[in-house]
Simulated scan of single mutants.
Amino acid sequence: MLLKKKTAVILVDDHAMMREPLASMLQAEGSFDVVGTAASAGAALPLIRERQPDIVLMDIDMAGLQCFEAAHIIRAECPMTQLIFLSAFVTDHFIDRALEVQARGYVTKFESPERIIQAIREVAAGGAFFSEQVRSRIVIDGHAASLSAASRSRAATLTRREREMVAYYARGLAQKEIADMIKIAKKTVEHHITNAMRKLDIHSKAELIRFAVREGIVPP
Results as ranks from 00 to 15, higher is better:
F130R: 02
A196E: 05
V12R: 07
A44W: 12
T91R: 07
E50F: 02
L158F: 04
S151P: 05
P219F: 09
A150F: 04
V218K: 08
T159W: 00
R152E: 02
L173A: 11
R49L: 14
E77A: 12
L3Q: 15
A155K: 08
M25H: 06
G142D: 13
V12G: 08
I60W: 03
P113T: 12
R160F: 13
Y168H: 14
S131K: 03
D59M: 06
I84K: 04
R210N: 14
H15R: 09
S146W: 04
A167W: 05
K186C: 07
S153A: 15
T7E: 13
I120Q: 11
L208P: 13
V90N: 06
V166C: 10
L45T: 00
K176I: 05
V107C: 15
I217L: 00
K4Y: 05
F94K: 07
I178A: 06
E122T: 11
L2V: 13
F85W: 03
K205C: 01
A156L: 02
A71E: 08
D201H: 07
E77Q: 10
S136V: 13
K176A: 10
H191Y: 12
F89L: 13
E122P: 02
R171Q: 11
E69Y: 03
I116E: 00
P113V: 11
R51C: 04
L65R: 09
I182G: 05
E122D: 14
V56M: 06
G127K: 10
M80K: 14
A76Q: 15
M165N: 01
C78F: 04
F130V: 02
V218P: 03
I178N: 01
A43N: 11
R19T: 10
A41V: 10
A23H: 01
G216W: 01
E111T: 05
I209S: 09
E100Y: 14
R104W: 00
A28Q: 14
A196L: 04
E111W: 06
A179H: 10
R51I: 00
M197S: 04
Q52F: 05
E190Y: 07
I209Y: 09
I48D: 06
P53T: 13
Q52P: 01
E215A: 04
